[in-house]
């Protein structure tokens, strides 16, 4: 089950906690992986850990020219992009009334617009191959909202609507487009929270604990697999029950 031998996967944000784990999991299933991220060092370290079938493809997703070049570079390096995982994301939290245009725009650019551009960039190859998997990493806050994250929640909700629209368009070509919406996962992004904040969040999580990156990676592996061919346009919530959607 879930054998990705011969498939090539491009993963953005592979230098982060969740992205790195997604890369490990797809690689372990037999896929060739293209590791993208802003910081080269952690990508190189991950590539060294994984060994063969691994390519490092640094890219700043705030730079649209670089974003447009990434699918082509990835296809050139790996031979194809059969699986795209849009995992990279940034936060610029602020109260809505204090949020600057720049805080708004940078989060929309990196989290939503780059996802649009990367999806568009890989579609040609997937259409020709009559096979493709796109998995967009959204967030529980895209569905529930979160104080201080008007920009982030907008981008993450936007990814879901975009995924569904694209899923309609390309379903007949063997391409699925889905989203995974993590809840609170132990990563650098949530390490920034204070213990009090974490304790408060956990009172809202029936499972009573934070999630692990591996638990997001498992969801991505499933949606990337041949077995998930009939699953498209859906959002798989992995959040310990904190929002049952």
């Amino acid at each position: 089950m879930f054998d990705l031998t011969g498939k090539c996967a491009l993963i953005t944000g592979a230098s982060g906690g969740i992205g790195g784990e997604i890369a490990r999991s797809l690689h372990a299933a037999g896929a060739t992986v293209g590791l993208s991220g802003t910081r080269t060092e952690p990508l190189e370290a991950l590539a060294a850990e994984l060994g063969e079938r691994t390519f490092v493809l640094p890219c700043n997703l705030g730079d649209f020219a670089a974003v447009e070049a990434l699918p082509k570079d990835a296809a050139k390096a790996m031979g194809a992009v059969d699986i795209l995982v849009n995992n990279a994301g940034i936060t610029r939290d602020n109260l809505f009334m204090r949020m600057s245009d720049d805080e708004w725009q940078s989060v929309i650019d990196v989290n939503l617009t780059s996802t649009f551009k990367l999806c568009k960039g890989v579609l040609r190859g997937m259409m020709k191959a009559r096979w493709g998997r796109i998995v967009n990493i959204s967030s529980v806050v895209g569905a529930t909202g979160n104080p201080g994250q008007g920009n982030y929640a907008a981008a993450k909700a936007g990814m879901v609507g975009m995924s569904k629209s694209l899923a309609y368009e390309v379903a007949s070509r063997g391409i699925t487009v889905n989203a995974v919406a993590p809840g609170f996962i132990t990563t650098a992004m949530t390490d920034k929270l204070s213990d009090d904040q974490k304790a408060a969040i956990l009172t809202q999580v029936p499972a009573g604990r934070m999630g692990e990156p591996e638990e997001i990676a498992a969801a991505v592996l499933y949606l990337s697999s041949p077995e998930a061919a009939y699953v498209t346009g859906t959002t798989l919530h992995v959040n310990g029950g904190m929002a049952m959607l």
Binding site: K128, S172, R173
Partner: peptide
């Protein structure tokens, strides 16, 4: 409409 995109490709 998608066929026309593929034809152009």
């Amino acid at each position: 409409s998608l066929d026309t995109v593929e034809l152009v490709m």
